[in-house]
Design a protein around this nucleic acid. Structure first.
Lengths: 157, 157
DNA sequence: CTATTAGTGGAAATCATTTTCATTAACTTC
DNA sequence: GAAGTTAATGAAAATGATTTCCACTAATAG
């Protein structure tokens, strides 16, 4: 399951070049891991997955790269309240799998949901437009999360 | 501008008693500060404001209390990406001032907005219901935030 | 009023993330 | 393709928000 299209370099190459960033082994390795992993990885999770194949890539670079990637909009940086940032790949060129999160405030379990996503996204699009104009914000991203007790934690009370 | 109703103790007393929590000087001092401050205070901000009047309340207790308060639903714990948690009072008994946030990813400035809030809240209410049923989640709270570049940071590029 | 135990402050520990700095390697230019 | 420019890097040290520890205090129950 390679990350390259059959006919060219991965779709993110252009994004890098366009912004004057260099495309390094480490950066590709990280995008590679993110694109192959489901879920919400912490910097250290990513380090663990990158390290076996690219032992020369250090944790520091993981952090630096994730920062670049999230500023480029290729990656979302998320906070689920467990004291470490989590990262997930923003949608690919095909705009696949947009979802939001349901977070248990007790055990920090996270459920990705796509139900109602269309209505949500439609409302967000409008709100984004309105807010952007009113506050002169160039909006690039949004977060919707619901917090509560998951089935297990809720019944354990 | 006292925090007590004219006819009784502050509205939050019941919440504490009901859950078996004790009502201490420190806890009241923190709620007091939060209810009198606009904005999004960090634990240290709160400490700074509580300390002059109650020098015996330590930073540790601020953290512990904020944790209790946010689990009680009296306080929202927020992350604006600047490396420290921010807290704001959840709506009082009158359900006043519900708002969401617009965060600049460059300078971390935060704008509270209430535009479109009614539509958002209505959609959230429905979504909350649907998700709660489907995933057996007892949803207690939500976050909507938009990220982007504020006027200043956007034009500085 | 006394007993019980939740809550506390301060110091020390933790631990995710950032900084520093000398070195490496991506890209540009010839 | 080789050389120069400088962005990017790894390792170690620093940072800084938050948590833990533990002996002590004080809120509530009886």
């Amino acid at each position: 399951m390679p990350n390259t299209d059959r006919f060219g370099p991965p779709w993110w190459h252009g994004k890098f070049r366009g912004c004057g960033y260099r495309l390094t082994i480490g950066r590709e390795a990280i995008l590679d891991v993110l694109s192959k992993s489901e879920g919400h990885l912490s910097a250290e999770d990513i380090y663990m997955k990158v390290h076996p194949r690219y032992p020369s890539v250090g944790l520091t670079s993981i952090y630096r790269t994730l920062d670049v990637l999230s500023h480029l909009g290729l990656v979302y940086k998320l906070d689920f309240g467990d004291g470490r940032a989590r990262y997930e790949l923003a949608e690919g060129p095909k705009g696949s799998h947009h979802h939001h999160h349901l977070v248990c405030t007790d055990c920090n379990r996270v459920i990705d949901y796509t139900d109602f996503i269309d209505d949500e996204v439609e409302l967000l699009r409008q709100t984004e437009k309105g807010l952007g104009e009113k506050y002169k914000f160039k909006i690039t991203n949004h977060v919707i999360q619901f917090y509560g007790l998951c089935e297990r934690c809720g019944s354990r009370k």
